[in-house]
Structures are given as C-alpha cells and as structure tokens.
Design a protein around this nucleic acid. Structure first.
Length: 750
RNA sequence: UGCCCUGUAGCUCAAUUGGCAGAGCGCCUGGCUCUGGACCAGGAGGUUCCAGGUUCGACUCCUGGCGGGGCAACCA
C-alpha cells in the first residue's frame, strides 16, 4: 500500500483497509477533440501513477460522445503523447462510443422505472424552465408522459424519425433541486451526424453525465478521478448508478486542474492560437501541449517529476513555469553533454598565434562534478568567435567578462587578453585583437599569466559549423492572460539566432542528442527542421543565470496588508433565532444543537437537570462533533445520563478532561457516568513520583529541545506535556503534568 | 442572494488526526569551481483569512463572518 501523500491516496488506502474495494482500477478519459497539454500530463500522471503504485490498472478511455468535434487524428495524437510520457495501458483501450448499445438499454430501463422521459420541448423552453441558481425550475408538460409512450418515442428517436433538436431524453429527478445538474438533466439529444468511429449508425448521442459513470461501471472502475469543475456533477453521477442499481459501483473524486502562469490551457484558446497562426502548429515549442514540449526537447521524465512534485489537492492552484524548468534542468544536468556554441558571434584575432597552427584540444564532455567519462576534440586556431555579450567596452558594475585590457579564460583552453577593439561606424565592436598566454593551459597548476576574470565559451572561426538557434520565452506577457488573451501575446516569445556557430564535434552525434551549450542552456535539434541544410537547435530551457538576475531590477512583491475585518451581527435564520431565545443559549453553541436531528429534544431533556449553558457547551463542543454521522437517538445513553455527566463537571467532581474521557467511553458502550469516573480514576496515573519519573524521562530523551526551550522556544512546553501525556496514554491529569514539567524545566534552567 | 468546494511562507505543498508550524521552488549571503551552471553551507520570509468559543494546549474541533472557485451548454 502506498503512503497517503495526498487526499486521493488517503481515500484509496481507507477503501482498501475497510474492504470497500479489493483492487484499484482508474481511468484517463480524454475527449478526442484536441491535443493533450501539460494539464493532461498532471491528470494522466496521477491516474497511471495510482495504477502502478497499487498494482491496479489504468484504462485509456476516449470519451467520444460528441460527433461534431471528435476525430481519429486526435485519438492518434493522444495515444502517441501518452506513450511518449511513458504510460502503458496494455489492452485497456476503450471508447465510450462502444458502449452506445448498453447505454441505450439502460436508458430504456430508466424509462420503464419511471425515472426518465422523452421531452418534446424546444431548447429554449427547456432552458427557461430550468430556473436559475437561486430560483427553482418548473416541470416540463411532457414530464407526466407514460413510460410506454416515452419508450416508443425513444425508439423512434433512435430510428431517425425526428429532426435534430426536436426531442430529448431526460432523467426525471427534481426541478427544484438546489443543484442545477439535478433538474431533470438531459440524457440524449438527436444528432444526425457522422461519428468518426460509429459512422451513421446512431443519430442519438448520450451526454457526458449519462455516458461517463456508466462507462466507468462497465469497465469496473473503482475510483473515477476528475477535475474540480465536475464536483456538481457527482450527485448526478451517483444518482444514475444508484437508479440502475449497479453494485459494486465506481465513485467519483475531484482534484484541482493544473493552471500555469504565462500560458493558457483551454482547448478553445489553444485552437485559436494554431488556427489563426499565432504559433506554427500544435507542436510549436512554445505551446503547452505535450507535442510542443516534446518538440522543444523537454523530457518525459522531467514532466512526470514536475507533475508528481506539485501534488494533488482540491485547492485551485496556479504554478509558476520556473517549477517545470527546475525539473527539466534537474533531469538534464547529468544527461546532457556540454558543448560550445556561440549564438551571436564576435570575431577575435589572436595576434601572437603562429600562422597556420591549429590545435586539437581534448575537451571533456562533463564538468568535474559529474562522474561521467568522455572527451571530444575541439579545434583552436588564431581566428575565434566569442559571444557579443561576453565583451563590453564599458562594463556595467559586476561585469566579469572580457573588457579592453582585461583577460578571460577560453573554456578548455588558454587565457587571452583584449588589446584592441575594432569598431564599425556606429561604434559597435566588430573584431577584437587579443594576446594568448599559452603557458595558461588548463592543466597548469599555478600560472604566471594575467588573472582571468572568468571563463567564456568560444568556437573556432573556420572550423565551427553554422547553425540557427531558437530561443523561447513565455507565450504571454501576462501571468494570467484574460479573455482577450491575444492582446497579452509576448512578441519576443521566439528569438532566432541565424548566424550561430557550433563546435564541429556535434556532427558525430545522434540527432536526438540533448546538450548543454556551456553557459547558455539545454538544447537539441528541432526535429521538424531535421532535414534542412543548416541544423536548427531549440533551447529546451536556459541555465539559471544569476548574472541576468542581478541586471533585472527586482520587483519586490508588496506585502499584502493583513485583512482586518469587523464582523457584522451574525445572521441566523428566524426560526433558529426563536429557538435560541426560548432555550436561552447563545448562537455559538445553540446553532449546532438546533441543526442536529433530535438536538433540541435531547437538549431539553438534559437541561432540565443541570445548568443549561453548560449542557449546551458540552453538547456543541464535545458530544455533537463526536457523533460522526450517528443519531442522538441511537446513542447508548440517554439525555439524563448525559446530564449526570455534565453535573459532575458542574459540581467540580470531575475535571473537564476526565469528563471528556468518560464521554468517550459512554459513546462507545454507554454506562453510568459516576461509575465510569470511578473506574477512570482507579486506572489513573496520579502518583506524583511516577509522573516525575516520566517527566525526567521525557526531558532526558529530548535534551536538545530542553536547551532550545531555555533559549526561548517556549512553545516546546506543550510538546513536553504532550509527550508525558502520551506515555501515560492519557491517564494523567494534564494540569498536574503541566505543573511538574514546568517545575522540572525551571530546575534545569539553574 | 441558492447549493457545493476551498483559504498554512512570494509560489506549490506538508504537519503522525488536539502536542515543536516544516519541505521543495524562488530570493539573499558565503564556500567550491576553468560554466555567473551544478554542488555544499547558512539566511530572510508566518496574525496558519478574520472574530469568537471549547481546551492545560487549536493549523487541527464548534459558531459566525470574509475572500477565492464551481454550478443555470441539446459541450466534456
């Protein structure tokens, strides 16, 4: 059994423990009407992960109940993406559209049961009669139609006797239900449309709510996990399954979908970006689609790591892309060979280089802290290219690279000094003339050369290969692009370096090799530019760059003002208020009593005997919360016995703590409070010497914390008391323990 | 003016079921380094949404309030 790292796993563990289920079956149910994106990665990682952890299975089910939008090409793309992510569903590939016949039969059953009917109302009428979230709806005139008539009509619907939109099948539930999903939801609509898998065999199509739970049931899914927006649908999910009498049946649980800053994940918006040409396709490397991430060069492993470490909760949450980037860097750091590539070249002539000399340097692929072997030859001559950014005539503060008269080390090679700068008419440097210090070779322990301010990357001017390099940034400028998301598009989300140059060693490599371009980031060849004469490299993710971070003025997030709120008078419903007044107790304790079934009666019974305020307090704070779904009438003790218990407290015969323990016993097996109190006291550790020993034990065991306590971490006092209480298994007076702990602590302080 | 879900560090999440408020990311400082990377060490950052109540003790239980999200598609 996996540890309960989130609420879903906690539920599953509990179901397994209580024998509600004996095996785990989950499903990942995409609709084949678009491409999978990073949000689906979260969902599929959860579901396939669950199956793996619990030795169960995860089905891939295409939720294809809408012929208008679905297509085989999406099915293929979804399968490809999931396989790429590393998931395997084996034989368990299913289609909701394969269940149409069964769904139809079940619908007929519901009609026969009087739980569904054919409605001839128009779309507008149905909408109007549904009411609003605050107003109940009203019943359709066709609701009273006999099962026989509905059955016949439904058969005709299937047979194609009616036009699109003229009739629907609805479940007969409750038009006044506070949950709008329960106001006679639609089960089938008429659509004379071609379905990509079923062709024209059907002209009625089931809706999501009707299809989904039943599909889960057919596949014997145990835990049907979906996103938060389906929460309101759960009641309906349950209703269909229970109406059909399916047992055992699946249960639905909801978790928060993934949102990410600076991007959009709505299918509609993604589609618009592609269709209107804001990106070049679904697999544009800036897209949050799995196809886009794949083309960008992101590894499946990094995505899975990201998805597992963000957790699973019910809190709406938005992740920062930095979190994903971190996972990518972590994954690639010890997998990507280091090579050198210059994005924006600045020529360098080494003046003291021997004419025609070409050195072949043996450069390791891996930095010192990565225990991997391998080197490649890197050619070096008197004509080099370095990065424009690595030279500054007037260096900003903190600049550690090359400046006129300054020196830097060429990575894997020698130290050079910049002696002269050649500039164009606009004053931009076009060539540097440098001196090399050949006694500064990497291996030289102490070198007499000028001290290098830093190390920069470079390539040989003649022997490097021209490539284009594509750098990507967020698709949007706004953290949360709004409805007019197109106006938030980042114009610089793609920057192409047409004249980049890379060291020749990469010619030998597999085209899918991923690299770290030293000091720049992680790159690989764009698979969609694979056959072009000049190779194109995609930036998968840049390196963390503490230099550029210091250049950008940091905006310190403003600390939000603490929210001070003065509450209004509590709003309590009139009938409750009246009862409160009669009972003579304050709302804080009175409301839970009033709103519990049998609460007022129980309260009346008990308060006849003891102080009503105390009874109310005890009911509200101790009895009611411990009920756990039980009814007051099912308790193994009466209101009178409860009153006796409260009386013990009232007369100070029992401490609060004792009384709570007695109550716990009474809740389990009933009994007379006074007797139980006697028994409790008999078993109690009240002998001071025993307690002192225990206190000493605790303080010795946690000597370090005692020190911390004396250094001012006084919150630990509660911890010590708690430890002693646990040692006595609650059978000591906390007051007494507290006093003893305090005494021991002050003694130790001296 | 309904029903449901949800509020813990800047972000994402923990906190053994009432007993030390923590971690990862981000940020800062230092170390190391032939990558301004990686790694190592340290640091800052908290009214646990607010107000009450119960308790020796509340992030945790009770009440009220406030904020955020979802639900009124012949979409899923």
């Amino acid at each position: 059994m996996a540890s309960a790292s989130d609420f879903i796993r906690a539920i599953i563990n509990d179901d397994l423990k209580r024998g509600k289920v004996s095996r785990i079956a989950v499903r990942f149910p995409p609709e084949p009407n678009g491409y999978l994106h990073i949000g689906h990665a979260k969902s599929s990682t959860l579901n396939f992960g669950l199956a793996a952890e619990y030795g169960g299975q995860c089905h891939l089910r295409f939720d294809d109940t809408n012929p208008a939008t679905e297509d085989q090409k999406y099915v293929d793309a979804i399968k490809r993406d999931l396989r790429w992510l590393g998931f395997d569903w084996g034989e368990n590939e299913f289609y909701a559209s394969d269940y149409f016949e069964q769904l139809y039969d079940w619908a007929c059953k519901l009609i026969q049961l009087g739980l569904a009917y054919v409605d001839d109302s128009s779309e507008e009428t149905i909408r109007a009669l549904r009411g609003t979230v605050t107003q109940p709806g009203s019943e359709s005139p066709f609701r009273k139609r006999s099962p026989e008539e509905s059955l016949a009509l439904f058969a005709q619907m299937r047979a194609g006797a009616f036009d699109d939109g003229t009739r629907v099948l609805r479940a007969k539930i409750d038009m006044a239900h506070p949950n709008m999903k329960m106001r006679d939801p639609l089960m089938y609509r008429i659509r004379h449309a071609h379905h990509y898998r079923r062709g024209n065999t059907w002209c009625i199509y089931p809706f999501y709510d009707w299809a989904h739970g039943q599909s889960d049931a057919i596949e014997k899914i145990t835990h049907s996990i979906c996103t938060l927006e389906f929460m309101a649908n759960r009641v309906l999910y349950d209703w269909y399954l229970d109406a059909l009498g399916i047992n055992p049946r699946p249960y639905q649980y909801e978790f928060a979908r993934l949102n990410m800053d600076y991007t959009v994940t709505s299918k509609r918006k993604l589609l618009q970006l592609v269709r209107d040409g804001y990106v070049d396709s679904w697999s544009d490397p800036r897209m949050p689609t799995l196809a886009g991430l794949r083309r960008r060069g992101v590894t499946p492993n990094a995505i899975r790591t990201f998805c597992t470490c963000i957790g699973t909760t019910k809190v709406d949450s938005t992740y920062h892309p930095g979190q994903l980037e971190h996972a990518i860097r972590q994954d690639l750091n010890d997998k990507a060979k280091r090579v050198m590539c210059v994005l924006d070249p600045l020529p360098v002539t080494i003046m003291n280089w021997r004419d025609g000399l070409v050195e072949e340097l043996e450069a390791p692929y891996w930095p010192h802290d990565i225990p991997r072997e391998g080197t490649r030859p890197v050619p070096l001559s008197g004509e080099l290219l370095i990065e424009q950014d690595d030279f500054a005539e007037e260096p900003p503060k903190g600049f550690r690279r090359l400046i006129p008269g300054g020196s830097v080390r060429l990575r894997h090679a020698y130290v050079i000094r910049c002696d002269r700068v050649e500039k164009d008419r606009a004053g931009r440097p076009v060539r540097l003339y440098c001196t090399v210090f050949k006694d500064s070779a990497s291996t030289t322990a102490k070198n007499p050369t000028p001290k290098a301010r830093s190390t920069i990357h470079w390539v040989d001017a003649r022997r490097s290969i021209p490539v284009t390099v594509r750098l990507y940034d967020h698709l949007f400028n706004a953290a949360a692009p709004g409805e007019d998301f197109l106006s938030d598009l980042n114009a610089d989300s793609l920057v192409v370096y047409e004249h980049a140059r890379i060291e020749p060693s990469v010619l030998e490599d597999d085209p899918e090799e991923r690299y770290q371009f030293t000091r720049l980031g992680y790159f690989w060849r764009d698979p969609e530019h694979a056959h072009e004469a000049v190779a194109a490299f995609n930036c998968i993710v840049s390196l963390r760059d503490s230099w550029s971070r210091t250049k950008v003025a940091k905006t310190v997030p403003e600390k939000p003002q603490p929210h001070i709120h003065i509450p209004d008078a509590p709003s309590v419903k009139p009938e409750a208020r009246a009862w409160l007044a009669r009972a003579g107790i304050p709302p804080a304790v009175g409301i839970p009593i009033y709103s519990t079934e049998g609460g007022p009666v129980f309260f009346a019974g008990a308060s006849a005997l003891v102080d009503r305020a105390l009874v109310a307090t005890w009911m509200a704070n101790h009895l009611l919360p411990a009920l756990n779904g039980r009814f007051l009438s099912d308790l193994p003790f009466t209101a009178v016995e409860f009153a006796q218990l409260v009386a013990l407290v009232n007369t100070q015969h029992a401490t609060t703590h004792e009384a709570r323990e007695v109550l716990a016993t009474m809740l389990k097996k009933g009994g007379n409070p006074e007797t139980l109190l006697e028994r409790l006291r008999a078993s109690r550790v009240s002998d001071e010497r025993t307690l002192v020993t225990l206190v000493e034990e605790v303080l010795t065991t946690y000597a370090d914390r005692v020190q911390a306590y004396h250094r001012g971490k006084t919150g630990l006092a509660g911890f010590f008391v708690g430890q002693v209480m646990q040692k006595t298994r609650g059978k000591a007076s906390p007051h007494q323990v507290q006093a003893l702990v305090h005494a021991a602590l002050t003694r130790l302080a001296k």
